[in-house]
Write a protein that binds this DNA or RNA. Structure first.
Length: 477
RNA sequence: GCCUCUUUAGCUCAGCUGGUUAGAGCGCCGGACUGUUAAUCCGUAGGUCCAAGGUUCAAGUCCUUGAAGAGGCGCCA
């Protein structure tokens, strides 16, 4: 008999039909009631075993975590808590789970403990929900761009470009590290390396995406990104996924419109597709926050927060306006900020961003037009000659989720900016060619996928929204 | 990289100003019950108190160093 997914049975309720289901036992109550989950939905399906007829040795093997196959009739449930159940006439244990050794019990486990057993944590309600939501979000992103005529571009993961300037890179080499090839001057001889040059894992696909956009008009990347930063926070990982759209004939305002539309589209899609997962995750978050002091709890539940973001325009303001607000803010006047705001030009610290997003505006904030000194060389110089057309999107609880800009398309301005940043022109010749031939205004941004999934799931640590997270000192699994 | 906190049973935790034999809930195992909902009830077992040094008559508790984890900051997505 063909296997039916539990989600289908719970949705269609084919009462009277004989079906086969396969999945993993969550609990086995009363030697009779199996709560079975197959990952198709957060809900379990109740399998009723015939205690009289079934072999006792078989019943003994039905333990939490075991994989079973059950065949029987779908009937209306007599008990509370579920509408239908299966009266099994045949149960097969496909894979036993020794209860002495199986680490997952039908009880609450800490996220830290589950992180240590990341290979098994998919079997929990929380993580199965998180990864279904993550999938739905990834799918929605592809659909959003596809429907708008964007081309999905796969930029290189191994890169020979060392001028991306977005942080420390992981080196990629096949040189024998125990006996590194040296040249005459004693330096490492990368001409003997696999690519005949020094290579790294990408920190951003942006520069390559720009090349694509200046021919295909609209492109986006969606791939892994690597940063060898020693960052020890709940929102940084050494390996994470980034979405980087790049649009020709677009300015910073088009860019902001695109980012806002995309974020809202994905939120809407996830709310529709993952209703029951979100309900579970929302409750999980409420329970977790019960242990926190009142003032640290969020004032909106998960779905409420998502709906709120959906229904309201993101707050747009310039860096200069933000500085004014911060300078006149209560915490600044009462010297509550660790880094007081006294003038124009310094980068905002997380405490300032959090004040703007969580206290002042209480919604996502888009900041534009930053001082040129604190932003990257490729961002377009504004007419004031002091600021660049950069934008950051800040989300409550997570901070920076998007960073983007209009790109500097004027060759002379770009090369002079590169000089300021000590970036050698000859290494970026391929990049500059796009400015030499048929250059045009264009813009793009990078969205940290995991940070967005944190918002969508209410999870507070990036390590809990990526299946096998890589962080300093940790590359297990 | 910097600062703070944590580490006690399989899991989640309690263990007071250092003082007899280190506790609870859940899980496991055994039994009872049998339409249960993290089932319930009774019972048993289960500990290198993170590690190494030190102080003390006495250390789970105090000190030093180290390890692992968490939170905050910086870097950023």
């Amino acid at each position: 008999m063909r296997r039916v997914k539990i989600k289908d049975i719970l949705t269609n309720q084919p009462i009277g039909q004989d079906v086969n289901v396969k999945g993993w036992v969550r609990t086995f109550r009363n030697n009779q009631f199996i709560a079975l989950n197959d990952g198709s939905t957060i809900s379990t399906l109740q399998i009723v075993a015939d205690r009289e007829k079934e072999d006792e040795s078989l019943l003994k093997k039905i333990t939490t975590g075991a994989a079973i196959s059950a065949t029987g009739k779908v009937v209306e449930s007599q008990g509370k808590g579920q509408s239908v159940e299966i009266h099994a006439n045949k149960i097969e244990v496909l894979g036993e789970a020794d209860p002495e050794k199986y680490p997952l019990q039908p009880k609450r486990h800490s996220l830290e403990f589950l992180r240590d057993i990341a290979h098994l944590r998919f079997r929990t309600n929380t993580f199965s929900a998180v990864f279904r939501v993550r999938h739905a979000a990834a799918f929605a992103i592809h659909k959003f761009f596809n429907d708008r005529g964007f081309v999905y571009l796969n930029t290189p993961i191994v890169t020979g470009s060392d001028a991306e300037g977005a942080g420390e890179m992981f080196q990629v080499t096949t040189l024998d590290l125990n006996d590194v090839a040296k040249d005459d001057s004693g330096a490492v001889d990368f001409s003997q390396d696999f690519f005949n040059k020094a290579t790294n894992l990408t920190v951003s696909g942006q520069l390559e995406a720009e090349l694509g956009a200046l021919a295909l008009s609209e492109v986006y990347t969606f791939g892994p990104t690597f940063r060898a930063e020693n960052s020890n926070t709940s929102r940084h990982a050494a390996e994470f996924w980034m979405i980087e759209p790049e649009v020709a004939f677009a300015d910073i305002h088009d860019n902001m419109d695109l980012a806002e539309a995309m974020l809202k589209y994905v939120i809407k899609h996830v709310m529709k597709q993952c209703e029951d997962d979100l309900t579970f995750l929302e409750q999980r978050l409420i329970n977790e926050e019960k242990q926190k002091p009142q003032n640290e709890r969020s004032d909106m539940a998960l779905k409420e927060k998502m709906a709120f973001v959906l229904e309201n325009d993101f707050q747009r303001l310039t860096y200069t306006e933000a500085i004014d607000i911060l300078r006149n803010s209560k915490p600044n006047k009462k010297k509550k900020f660790k880094f007081p705001i006294d003038g124009w030009g310094a980068d905002l610290q997380s405490e300032h961003e959090r004040f703007l997003v969580e206290k002042h505006f209480k919604k996502p904030v888009m900041l534009v037009d930053y001082p040129k000194e604190i932003k990257a060389f490729y961002m377009r110089m504004n007419d004031d000659n002091k600021t660049v057309a950069a934008m950051d999107i800040l989300f409550p609880g997570i901070g920076e989720i998007v960073g983007g800009s209009q790109r500097e398309e004027r060759l002379d301005v770009l090369t002079s900016r590169m000089k300021d940043f000590d970036i050698p022109e000859h290494e970026m010749d391929w990049f500059l060619d796009t400015r030499r031939f048929g250059t045009c205004p264009h813009a793009g941004f990078g969205l940290g996928f995991e940070r967005f999934v944190m918002f969508l799931t209410g999870m507070g640590n990036i390590r809990d929204v990526i299946p096998f997270p890589r962080t300093p000192g940790n590359a297990e699994f």
